[in-house]
Design a protein around this nucleic acid. Structure first.
Lengths: 106, 106
DNA sequence: CCGATTGTTCGACTACTATCGAACCATGCC
DNA sequence: GGCATGGTTCGATAGTAGTCGAACAATCGG
């Protein structure tokens, strides 16, 4: 049994709107979510374009997004894949993600 | 000329998405925005239903919402009227407010 | 003009959040 | 097993946000 090191994720039904809004209210996190909207990324690829951020800082932001239910973080071999929980979000908060992503990046 | 004591409001074109999301990410502020969606209120009426909050605390939340461009705060005689900037928000972030308000209060 | 009413602002304190290095953990490869 | 790789967690520190009392400002009514 390959040691399951799965991280806790809230289930779709229990997502809290204010938590989601807070997770999206940080510019660097929102920028990441925009990129994730185009497909999953490994954690290393979640680095902001250009600048390098310490792994611990990046991991912290991913945790915020994950605990709010915005992204899913799944181990895959030696790495982890981060993906947007688009369906869950659309189901619970219809139109929210589209509205947020529909605004041009600033 | 009755002393104009107008508070500063960002203009519609310069609203920042992350600031708006942050302003809405607080449960008490979001609850207030829901009520404002049904029409303007005087500041005193912005008190959370039931519990009493110090005036300074309430004023602080109103400031956060105002500076993010979510509400407008206009003096009217001895009181002030707080209103949702629905058109400005819809114009700049189409669908966002509807999505946020569309979710049942928690 | 005086006092009551309606709110904002200031200052202090507390609580939370961001950031980063270092330690730690699991995996894959030799 | 031993070691490099990819990430999370821990702990400390600095900055930011929430809460509240007290002071201040502007208006209306006597």
């Amino acid at each position: 049994m390959p040691g399951a090191r799965d991280l806790p994720h809230p289930d779709a039904a229990s997502l809290v709107l204010t938590d989601v809004l807070f997770a999206l209210s940080d510019p660097s996190r929102l920028a990441l979510v925009r990129r994730l909207a185009q497909g999953p990324l490994e954690v290393a690829a979640c680095q902001p374009t250009g600048g390098e951020v310490p792994k611990s800082t990046l991991s912290h932001h991913l945790k915020t997004l994950r605990e709010a239910g915005v992204v899913r973080n799944v181990p895959e071999g030696r790495q982890r894949y981060v993906s947007l929980r688009r369906e869950d979000l659309d189901d619970r908060f219809p139109g929210l993600l589209d509205a947020v992503l529909g605004t041009a990046a600033e």
